[in-house]
Amino acid sequence: MTQPLLSVRNLSTRFRTDRGLVRAVDDVSFDVAPGETLAIVGESGSGKSVTALSILRLIPDPPGKIESGEILFEGKDLLKLDDAGIRAIRGDRIAMIFQEPMSSLNPALTVGLQVGEPINLHRKTVWSKALDKAAELLGKVRIPDGKSRLNSYPHQYSGGMRQRVMIAMALACQPKLIIADEPTTALDVTVQAQILALLKELTREANSAMILITHDLGVVARYADRVAVMYGGRIVETAPARPLYKSPRHPYTRGLMASVPRLDGDTGRPLVPIEGQPPDLASLPAGCAFALRCKDATERCHRERPPLVESARHHFSACWYHERLAA
């Protein structure tokens, strides 16, 4: 692999809550290569969104806090930058697309101002030029008649259109990395595919890397180069998308796949839900976090936490029995 664009090393993010310290992200490491799309998959509460927010240091503090780790972006540790330093990265080198297009655009400000703002700020472009660029960006995300729409407000747009505006805003400064936190969860299914296709096309065009946070394995299959599966604040399996699909090496990933309907191949296969509840991050067990829900868990699984090891080339799994799963 070439020099990674982003290298997250041993990241731990905690939240102080009434119920004690919650380890939302616990010792997570992963790399993103330039131009690559990495999908981070997991249930709600698996730590995937907190991981995304930690990269740009957007965790509300208090109650949250990045406790340890390194986030190396183009060789610089983002956790060591001062406030002005991280602000210069945000929206310029690394852009973010949030889950809720309905509430992530400011209802009181025009679309033109919101899309032009990063250009004006990071490129030191005068407002009239920034607005021209904003109109151009709206065209790129297939919002017709961008120029005349600059003065409109978010409530005049549909959900899909707003997410297009968010994409335009993210692309404004041609970032090297786009972090999309469940970008289509709030949208109609028909619109979801359009938005993802557009996002993929535009990131490829700009040669931007992308971290795609999702709970939808169907999305992952189509758009990701590599996948990291998170469970209980940790990465339990990571591999290039194809081998992960063909032979998952963690029982949780297998469970996820068995619980997703597939329209290709084996359509007669019954859906198998994963029994039990996601783990309580405030009181994780000493052993494997998935052991309580795992059919094949042994005494060792409950006692010792399995490390993430390379089970096959580029394919890592945090299961004591990853080799048995591969067979």
Partner: peptide, 20 residues
Amino acid sequence: DYIAMAKAKGLRPARILLVH
């Protein structure tokens, strides 16, 4: 959410408070 978005765009706290 739009305040988190404004932060993610790299805006200064003063601009977030006074404009957004």
